[in-house]
Design a protein around this nucleic acid. Sequence first.
DNA 1: CTGGCAATAT
DNA 2: TATATTGCCA
Length: 297
Amino acid sequence: MGKEVDVSDAGIVGGGGSDDGRILDWEDGLPSGDDLAPLSMHLVPPELASAFSIPPADIKTMLDVHRASQQTIYSLTAHHKPTASSQVNGSLKPFASSAAEKENCLMDLEAEDPDESPLSEASGRLPEFGAEEAVDSSALHGENSVDDQRALKRPRLVWTPQLHKRFVDVVTHLGTKNAVPKTIMQLMNVDGLTRENVASHLQKYRLYLKRMPGFSNEGPSSSDHIFASTTVQQNLHEQSSLPPNSRRMPYTVPSMIPMPIYAFQHQQSNGAVPFNNRQGGASYHGFDAHDPYAANN
DNA sequence: CTGGCAATAT
DNA sequence: TATATTGCCA
């Protein structure tokens, strides 16, 4: 990876076939197609997997491979979020790879807060892929394979207790004044989380707060260290994608930005436990009327 | 363009 | 039911 291939003269892809030698050179030593395990083949035999409680991996399709390779390419090139300045019209859409990344790195949400309730989210449930158009449309039409990725509609977000906790932490830290969807989204630092996701959740959350007076938080609390519990190390990535003139608020101190997690999204029904999935009782728009965060804090 | 909010959709 | 989307206005 650290080596660059000189493409200045021979690299023009569609040009002449004069670069065959180089490509053969490249392929030399690689296993042939016959030596490779088919995609449908499990790396771990089912019996062995079940013996060790390893959840069965889902069969990979060409579409999966396509996405994975796109993500690889993406990570090798620009690791940019979609900003106004970034010109991404060429081939790689940040959104597409972000979605792929999200799907591949499932829910690693746990990993902060050891005292978190051991909810059985990690029940080994793999979120399947949304588009069931298993047929490779690019093979049929040869176009819009990239555009489709952005057009893929995201699975609906599940506000797990972990996600919700992060949400509440950020919101209470910001205070009612500064807690706007965009800011919340940025500070939550959850990969794949959209502004709309936050806005929708925030709307409900405010309705909840309205009937629970006393929990509301006015101004930004600069002193509390709600993010101190979450270990911060790497991941100061892409925080500088803000426009140069945008003001850097005191609460955007990098050390407060928690470790990135991945938004867990699902299709229909799976083992994901919503943060408010209590059983009966009084709840208002999903927010428990009594103490919704007892289990989360 | 973003945010807030109610209504409506999935 | 939980979340998404839409429409309208600030």
